[in-house]
Design a protein around this nucleic acid. Structure first.
Length: 214
DNA sequence: AACTCGGGGCA
DNA sequence: TGCCCAGAGTT
């Protein structure tokens, strides 16, 4: 069975469905400050939030400011985070970013997209995570899962990532941003996979554009 | 536009 | 055991 509803109604229904099936997103990056969120998000590239939390739980006990992190050599920092992938690049980015925070931003995490993008290891997605979660600004983070799942569901046009960011930022009510982001990612991993999506076991297929067209 | 980093997840 | 990836930088 399929229903004809507009996008906003679809969002409301998805909130109902997702909150029931993914009651505890549980995959959020644990942090106690905008700085910790920034570092955790840089670490999260091509990795799960669960893996990142394992590493940052210990790291942030002592090293939760740019100044503190800069006490570590790259090798020392590598030893603390080398249980996740891409750690050589990530340690390099983090140390450079900490240096920039002190030299160029008064030791604080900047709150504009333009400034955040200057930091090492901070791209479109990381910048939006910080803007939305630390500064409550209009910026819906879009990664590969969010891009694919929202396009399939019919929430976004799927033209490109920049367009999808704009569309979801406008479409999804702000109070749902954090949860919705994680729901789309979890759903993209478990059900709405890039290859061979498991539509038979999908609880949103009745309002899914992709399912209706296939 | 293609290549690289990398341990973990999953078939 | 091999394939892919919850991004970003470099060439």
């Amino acid at each position: 069975m399929t229903k004809k509803i507009n996008k906003r109604e679809k969002v409301e229904e998805l909130v109902e469905i997702f909150s029931k099936h993914y009651p505890e997103p549980g995959t959020a990056l644990e942090h106690n400050s905008s700085f910790e969120l920034l570092i955790a998000t840089i670490l999260s590239a091509q990795t799960t939030d669960v893996q990142v939390n394992k590493v940052t739980k210990e790291l942030f006990k002592e090293y939760n400011t740019p100044k503190a992190v800069l006490k570590l050599s790259q090798k020392e920092l590598e030893e603390k985070i080398n249980s996740i992938g891409l750690y050589r690049n990530k340690t390099k980015y983090i140390l450079k970013t900490c240096r920039m925070l002190i030299d160029d931003f008064g030791g604080e995490v900047p709150s504009t997209r333009k400034e955040l993008l200057k930091l090492a290891g901070v791209g479109r997605k990381t910048a939006n995570v910080v803007l939305a979660n630390a500064f409550y600004k209009a910026a819906f983070p879009v990664d590969t899962h969010v891009f694919r799942v929202s396009e399939r569901l019919g929430l976004s046009s799927g033209k490109n990532v920049n367009q999808t960011e704009k569309e979801l930022t406008k479409l999804i009510p702000k109070k749902y941003w954090i949860d919705f982001h994680h729901w789309l990612i979890d759903h993209g991993r478990a059900i709405c996979k890039a290859q061979n999506p498991d539509c038979e076991n999908c609880f949103a297929s009745h309002i899914c554009r992709y399912y209706q067209n296939n």
